[in-house]
Write a protein that binds this DNA or RNA. Structure first.
Lengths: 246, 246
DNA sequence: CGGGGGTTTGAGTCCGTTCAAAATACGTGG
DNA sequence: CCACGTATTTTGAACGGACTCAAACCCCCG
């Protein structure tokens, strides 16, 4: 059941932006002490449960969000109700800036996929920061430019690669965050998503995801049991994406 | 035959940025008189023939381009040689800014599809303008944010719509620029692209494009003869994209 | 121990691809 | 202005990957 996120259903948490924003090389790294103070006073941090919605397609884009922890999916739906997950957002990543900067209503729905802690930064504060510190705009410019690159890659993959290869690619991505290397070279991971969400991410159906898993398992590239996956041969998983001519 | 664009193969043309840049609501509209002067002295305008390449996947992204006239396609190719056209660029549009701002090598190839007049703005000038006028960065931020929106829409369409619907959508887009309305409500257009390029744009094969044309023609939505298309019923063309539940 | 969501399996179908050949349009030079 | 060669477009038939629908299965949780 998807519930609407509002103050009543998500509990605020107190914490300072300091540690989380500047430590890593995020868009926020260009902020001065002063800027962070401003942000600190304006941001609202909350805990969300899986299934809650940060914002919905059609909503005005008057805030951006910064993930402390958890996972959020950006879902795009057409009038016919067809849907794809266009992106996964993890800890330390910012989301919701796209439509904010495009000055348009939300074109995606942000759906909390796993329990998450997220800061909301209202639009007024963003505008103030952008004026105060022009470098911040250029940081987001770079961020979005890379998002566009990713989106084009997805489009290319969707067009020219079969589901099996797209799944291989996805596993290679998830491995970084959720993988646990064993000493025999294999990598164990527990998938953070159910088949339906994997299907939405791959642009296919849950049944097809299952069959693609089985195809990879049959060829000893991986081993699968439900959400538990073991990557047996990383190299051949890489080969799935670009079958080098033999 | 695709030839490399270089000063030898493309003839420079003298003209002022003034008229072309500021008249319409492009990213450049925020430039001051002074800025335009700077741009004017730095830009190089050339005429390109169909088939020439402005930049290639892998090249350093050290310039951006502004179309005076013509048509350019952005093509993305994977290691296996599979290719898609991710965008068409027309007169008065800017291109090549994505990788420039992402500070990465070119991820697409810019291919001149019809004879074009194009201004090159070198990176140094861009950097100078961005410092001089921070609003320019925000303009491009908005531009790329909208490109990302378009890319996501293409991804969604590619995933959930059949070729026929995607072709309908493309015709509706091309109609704006190349359509000629008749007084009986029909719209005539001569396609600026061959079947292969339409296929690359739709993520399919030339043969399938032909068959999709025929399917639409069979249902009296359009009439086709080679590159000459007549849209008979605009409404049902719109319905192709979103088949409203009956 | 009995739900109940999530996952797997199977069979049939469809859309789009592939490969090959025929037909047509187009540009160039005679 | 026509003839010719080449590129493009169309047509056909066979194949295949992914979808649909439906039923069975399997955990996981209460």
């Amino acid at each position: 059941m998807v519930t609407r996120a509002d103050p009543a259903s998500a509990e605020p948490v107190a914490e300072h932006c300091f540690e989380c924003l500047n430590r890593e090389r995020t868009e926020w790294c260009v902020l001065t002490h002063d800027d962070v103070d401003l942000l600190d006073r304006a941001k609202v941090q909350r805990v969300y449960q899986a299934g809650q919605v940060l914002f919905d397609q059609g909503d005005p884009a008057d805030a951006i969000y910064d993930m402390q922890d958890g996972m959020v999916g950006l879902r795009r739906t057409d009038e016919g109700g067809h849907t794809v997950l266009v992106a996964l957002i993890h800890a330390r990543q910012t989301l919701g800036y796209r439509d904010f900067f495009a000055d348009s209503p939300r074109h995606t729905t942000a759906e909390v996929l796993r329990p998450s802690t997220i800061c909301t930064v209202n639009g007024e504060t963003m505008h103030r920061l952008l004026v105060k510190n022009p470098a911040l705009g250029l940081q987001f410019l770079r961020r979005i430019a890379r998002d566009l690159d990713t989106a084009e890659e997805m489009l290319l993959h969707q067009t020219v690669l079969p589901v099996r290869a797209r799944l291989a690619h996805l596993l290679l991505t998830l491995r970084i965050r959720y993988g646990q290397a064993a000493e025999d070279g294999s990598i164990a991971l527990r998938l953070p998503l159910r088949r339906q969400d994997l299907a939405d991410l791959l642009g296919t159906r849950p049944e097809t995801v299952t069959r693609a898993f089985q195809a990879l398992a049959r060829d000893r590239v991986i081993r699968v049991r439900g959400r538990r996956v073991i990557i047996l041969d990383l190299d051949s998983l890489l080969d799935e994406i670009e079958p080098h001519a033999v």
